[in-house]
Nucleic acid binder design. Structure first.
Ligand SMILES: [Mn+2]
Ligand SMILES: [Mn+2]
Ligand SMILES: [Zn+2]
Ligand SMILES: [Zn+2]
Lengths: 136, 136
DNA sequence: TTTCAGTTTATAATAATTCTAAACTAGAAA
DNA sequence: TTTCTAGTTTAGAATTATTATAAACTGAAA
């Protein structure tokens, strides 16, 4: 899906130097079929597993921040004191499983609204996201 | 709105001893007209302002956790690594102002959905909340 | 090749939260 | 009432999440 060349171009186009670390992290994040919802902690574990070249935690933080600013990632709404990120940057919705604490994407077209409130005076709606809490 | 007696009963009914600290915090939180959206930090500032009796930060954390478990408060979805709470425990929606970073309640009846996805197999929908991001 | 701004890294600092254990207290029981 | 004690508060330590620092490293322009 994502060849190294593509990643390099993508990074360059955002003014980010395609360093070894950034390319490796981008590959882990974007070279996959399904959306990836993660925290720095889970990503760090995936990247720094035995036998693989190490990337410092500081670089992981820096890179995720850079990717988020560049629009490659999106911060997810949670009620935890830890940041969550999403590789699906399209406006979309989520199922949130209370038991497993896992998120699943819902395509934007899967939810239709027939009534939406008028925003406060002088303010415009930028986007609208739905979280559907589910349970066994 | 909330007399001391009512607060004491409410606490007792949840198996929480109506201590001086809990009653004072409950009064600050619930004796108001509009919903209060807050963090531990903002609440601490409100409680421990000059001239008032001090309540330790640990107690504020403990009390907010106890109130949340008792169902008096709800954790709010955010993308910040800091927990937010809401005195409005009804299922409801929010406007989130990107500029001021402030939340405003939207009554549940103000949003109507004409299409909702089927939850994953074996799971049931517990609730559905909408966040509408707004900007100047 | 050389050069150097941008980047990585280990580590320190800060911020948010949770833990600990000693002192205190609400309220049941004497 | 007074006594008793489990529940609670508290200061401070510990832990966790994140950001800052500053020295070493490197991608890529020239
Ligand atoms: Mn940073
Ligand atoms: Mn705790
Ligand atoms: Zn998603
Ligand atoms: Zn609210």
């Amino acid at each position: 899906m994502y060849q190294k060349k593509e990643i390099v171009n993508k990074l360059r186009s955002s003014g980010l130097r395609p360093t070894k670390q950034r390319v490796l992290i981008a590959k882990k994040l974007f070279d996959r079929d399904k959306t990836f919802h993660f925290t720095i902690e889970t990503l760090d574990k995936k990247i720094n597993k035995k036998g693989s070249e190490k990337i410092s935690l500081a670089t992981i933080y820096n890179t995720i921040e850079a990717f988020t600013n560049a629009g490659y990632l999106k911060a997810i709404l949670t009620s935890k004191s830890k940041s969550y990120y999403d590789t699906n940057i399209k406006s979309h919705h989520h199922f949130y499983d209370e038991g497993t604490k896992e998120l699943t994407d819902i395509d934007y077209s899967q939810i239709k609204l027939s009534k939406v409130p008028i925003p406060p005076k002088g303010k415009k709606i930028k986007n609208l996201e739905v979280v559907i809490r589910v349970q066994k």
